[in-house]
Design a protein around this nucleic acid. Structure first.
Length: 276
DNA sequence: CATGATCCCTGACTGC
DNA sequence: TGCAGTCAGGGATCAT
């Protein structure tokens, strides 16, 4: 399930196949994604040349002079660059064919993702304009994400800190896997009220979030069910997960057993000895 | 405004 | 082997 590391790996993986190349065809086999795929996508994109491939949160922004293609992978989406004449498989919903004979192929079994077209500044798009700061350096956005920011934003909030750091208006890109992992590293109980955490502990949390995301990127991402990179290969970060998906297993730092509870329909994994 | 519930969808898994 | 039921999960949107 793509979180920021998986999206960043995808961005890096598709970049060289796209930049400087021109779209010769757009094939849409399924329009029913999170929002309908724009009917005019082929008309808008054909003949355009990709200039830059950026990321804002979990949104990929594929720039052309005519406008931006905004892609979100939802939770089962993936992009790969392959020969355009490769037989499409089930759930291969969209092909963006390039003058090189390579196509960018969008695959998404659960169809929670989105492929949109944006005319103006994509950062002003309704889906992107209210997003919080980037936890790791990003070309498009340099609002500071540090302990002072989290401390300030959290005062008076009674939300569980797990939900707080998963809120894209607070900080982008931290999904359930990495939220749980970062809270373990920081030694913070996932259900602690965000407003009852000290500045000092937010300092630890900020570095835990950064460290977790960076290590996941270095490992090629986390593949639990269906993530694969632009070449169709899985990531390996799941092998180093401390708590996520480890209910009933032994904590890697003490003799305790990892617990799982549910909150807001989403699992929380933690060690009650290491996290408070 | 802050927060929690709901909904979209399918593959994987469980139990019979 | 097959079938029905359950669950996960990003995140916008709705309800409170």
């Amino acid at each position: 399930m793509p979180e920021l590391p998986e999206v960043e790996i995808t961005r890096r993986g598709i970049q060289s196949a796209l930049v400087g190349h021109t779209v010769t065809d757009v094939i849409v086999r399924e329009t029913r994604l999170r929002w309908p795929v724009p009917a005019h996508l082929k008309r808008k994109l054909s003949g355009s040349t990709f200039t830059t491939i950026n990321r804002r949160g979990k949104y990929l922004l594929l720039a052309t002079k005519a406008g931006h293609l905004i892609i979100h992978l939802g939770m089962s989406g993936s992009l790969r660059t392959i020969a355009a004449d490769t037989q499409p498989r089930t759930h291969d919903h969209i092909d963006i064919v390039l003058d090189t004979g390579i196509c960018l192929r969008y695959h998404d079994p659960r169809r929670f993702g989105a492929v949109l077209w944006c005319h103006g500044d994509p950062l002003k798009h309704p889906l992107l304009v209210k997003l919080g700061p980037e936890p790791i350096p990003n070309e498009l956005h340099d609002q500071i994400f540090d302990e002072d920011y989290l401390y300030r934003k959290s005062r008076g909030r009674r939300r569980a800190v797990r939900d707080f750091i998963m809120d894209s208006h607070i900080v982008v890109g931290v999904g359930n896997i990495y939220a749980n992992e970062a809270l373990f590293i920081a030694g913070i109980h996932p259900r602690r009220h965000a407003g009852r955490i000290s500045r000092h502990r937010y300092r630890n949390l900020v570095s835990a979030i950064r460290d977790t995301l960076n290590r996941a990127i270095a490992a090629g991402g986390t593949t639990l069910r269906d993530f694969s990179n632009a070449d169709g290969n899985p990531g390996y970060f799941q092998q180093t997960l401390n708590v996520y998906g480890r209910e009933g297993e032994k904590c890697r730092q003490c003799d305790n057993t990892i617990r799982r509870v549910t909150s807001g329909g989403r699992s929380i994994f933690y060690c009650s000895h290491c996290q408070h």
